[in-house]
């Protein structure tokens, strides 16, 4: 147990040096558990915001004045879904499943950008 702790604190010192030097961290690199948790929280929160953000934008599709503009807005809303999927994939590389993140959202445990809780119409 002590050996593990010593190893971890030695690793953490090396890790902090890398951060201080401006190195980038890859998902398979060693990282402190808290760092991994913060990244998952941040990235999944961003992903949820993209997905929830589709709703207020989507409200405007029926009101876009022409077919051309409806198509443009549809594409824009679909873009948000794409951003969400990229972000969920990025978070998955850090060791959490998409189902788990989505459950956290549906159970109200995960947050998303609070501005989407206001109406746009």
């Amino acid at each position: 147990m002590n050996e593990i702790n010593t190893n971890d604190s030695a690793r953490e010192i090396t890790f902090n040096d890398r951060i201080a030097n401006g190195d980038t961290v890859e998902p398979n690199d060693w990282m402190p558990e808290k760092y991994r948790r913060q990244l998952i929280r941040l990235i999944s929160q961003h992903a949820h915001s993209e997905i929830i953000g589709m709703l207020p934008e989507g409200n405007w599709i029926t009101r876009a004045p022409s077919l051309r503009r409806k198509v443009a807005l549809l594409a824009k809303v679909q873009d948000e879904a794409g951003h969400g999927h990229y972000l969920y994939s990025a978070a998955e590389t850090l060791g959490i499943s998409r189902e788990e993140m989505y459950d956290q959202l549906l159970q109200g445990k995960a947050k998303y950008s609070s501005i989407f809780n206001y109406p746009t119409h």
């Binding site: 997905i51 929830i52 709703l55 207020p56 959202l105 549906l106 109200g108 609070s114 989407f116 809780n117 206001y118 109406p119």
Partner: peptide, 11 residues
């Protein structure tokens, strides 16, 4: 907020 319930219900 005014739309929290609506947003979560939609999801």
């Amino acid at each position: 907020g005014p739309c929290n319930h609506e947003r979560m219900e939609a999801r």
